[in-house]
Nucleic acid binder design. Sequence first.
DNA 1: AAAACCTCCAACCGCCAAGCG
DNA 2: TCGCTTGGCGGTTGGAGGTTT
Length: 254
Amino acid sequence: MRPYSNTGPELRKGAWTVQEDMLLKNYIDKHGEGKWHLIPLKAGLNRCRKSCRLRWLNYLRPNIKRGDFAQDEVDLILRLHKLLGNRWALIAGRIPGRTANDVKNYWNTHQRSCSKQRKKEPKDDESLQESKVTIIKPQPQTFSKTLNFGNTPHIMARQGGNPKSCNDGTKNNFNLSSGLNLPSIVLDDNINKYIDDLFDDHEKGIDGTIGWSFCGSSGKGKALNVVDQDDDQISFFDFPMDDITMELINSDQL
DNA sequence: AAAACCTCCAACCGCCAAGCG
DNA sequence: TCGCTTGGCGGTTGGAGGTTT
């Protein structure tokens, strides 16, 4: 890939050598991931923390799949991209063995070839219609710092209702319509079924509940448990997206 | 055979948010 | 509150290798 070059007196850039890979892998096998700022020093690598992290995540980590994407993986990428846009980390989090970089590279390649094809067939109205997508773009949240997903909180979804405070006195509520920037689309039965098909099996596999996992990496795979006012579990997408207030309450309150 | 072109993908870059003192 | 550090992400680059002309 990139030629070796030293921008500073120490740090190496460019392709990794087998020796460097071994040093990094051995260190992480022994001490685990994290503390990336320490890894170059402790592993004896003249690499920056970012380079080490990237090399591990995209190449050295166990269970990384290599080779072509299977058809079901491609389908999943296409569907998730329709929902999430270029949120590669989120998409990759739902495809076992694939990294965000893999997905991103695949998509860029795929998109290039698709756009070329579209240029060749400019009058293909059907394909143009299919390419019109609605993207759900989760944006960085302004959650309260006291929000603790580790306690398996429940999300109470109310439409126009007043948010309640948690028993610790904090108001751990957030507004879906402004937070997640969900599109104001009408969710008809087909879309609901589509989304259910997309997520149901995976979500249920997480902790036996359904919901929306906030993000692949920082969310550590925890899913939000969405319930309605009667404490019946409902799909995250079963209620209108406008003017929804969600609140976190401790699970022992239910 | 060789030059031109294309595709793939590892790696880098810049930015952002969270955490901490 | 502010500035610094760190982790993480998406966009982009550019070399290697394959394909076409």
